[in-house]
């Protein structure tokens, strides 16, 4: 065995009982399936525990549990499991790929489900379709500049406090836990985060109102619900984004709605 890869053998092992959502494809109604006594080490990440279970299933000739993951360091936003009813599981500010089995008691019983939201249809087992998020960004979550011809990076000073607030919101990884946690399946923390990120920077302010209008309209058309201030989104957000971004979104959207009305009147009155 290699130097690096033999590593440290965790001395303790633990067992957990899993109940996992299995669903063949988008049309299959799906069901919970039990996997008793899954052996694992407290040093494993939650996804490594599922990897081990999948290896066991395949050794028995069964199909493994499908789930999304990629970077496994909490930044790509691919992983999307609900553990015992909490998106990304019980540890605050942590994606499920960074959640370790030491967070659970030996013998724990764990219920693992996909994100549940009308706008995130299940594709297979724990894998859902989050392309609605991409379409919201496509509607307006950007600054309209093309490559080339931009002024010097230091041409416009940005107060540190503003840059920091932009960064706080820009930390969003687009995982969708906020939607999965919301009783209304609202996407307002996600949308608010993008609006907040760009409104705190001078570069984003030219399109501030247009952006809010376009993104919120797209969000509504994707079938996400409305915010009724449960604040579950903030509680589960692995990047701990504050619900203040929702207030900022609402302010921009309201302001945009008023301006839009005026524009219509202007247009109507011309000629």
């Amino acid at each position: 065995m290699s130097a690096q890869q033999s590593g440290h053998q965790g001395h303790s092992t633990m067992k957990v009982t899993l109940h996992v959502w299995r669903q063949k494809d988008a049309r299959d109604p799906g069901r919970m399936v039990g996997y008793p006594n899954v052996e694992c080490s407290p040093d494993m990440s939650f996804l490594e525990m599922l990897d081990v279970l999948n290896e066991r299933l395949m050794e028995k000739g069964e199909e493994p549990i499908a789930f999304d993951s990629d970077c496994r360091e909490g930044i790509c936003g691919a992983c999307s499991l609900t553990v015992n009813g909490i998106p990304h599981g019980p540890r605050k500010g942590t994606t499920v790929c960074q959640l370790h089995m030491r967070s659970f008691e030996d013998g724990a019983e764990l219920f693992i489900e996909p994100w549940r939201a009308k706008a995130f249809p299940v594709l297979r087992d724990l894998v859902v379709d989050r392309s609605a998020f991409d379409r919201i960004i496509e509607a307006g979550g950007f600054v309209s500049v093309r490559a080339g011809g931009c002024p010097d990076g230091n041409a416009i000073p940005v107060p540190k406090e503003e840059a920091d607030q932009a960064m706080d919101a820009a930390a969003c990884i687009g995982c969708g836990a906020c939607v999965a946690a919301c009783p209304n399946a609202a996407a307002m923390l996600f949308v608010g985060a993008k609006i907040s990120h760009l409104r705190h920077l001078p570069q984003g302010q030219a399109e501030q109102k247009r952006r809010a209008q376009a993104m919120v309209d797209q969000m509504d058309s994707e079938g996400f619900g409305n915010c009724s201030n449960y604040l579950e989104c903030e509680a589960v957000c692995p990047k701990e984004i504050s619900v203040k971004v929702i207030a900022e979104m609402n302010r921009d959207y309201l302001s945009a709605s008023l301006t839009r009305e005026e524009q219509k009147n202007d247009g109507g009155g011309a000629g």
Partner: peptide, 18 residues
Amino acid sequence: DQCVAQGVPFAREYGGLL
């Protein structure tokens, strides 16, 4: 320059420069 124009929130000093 390109990334600043796109709204990349680079770290800044108190004077507002990068």
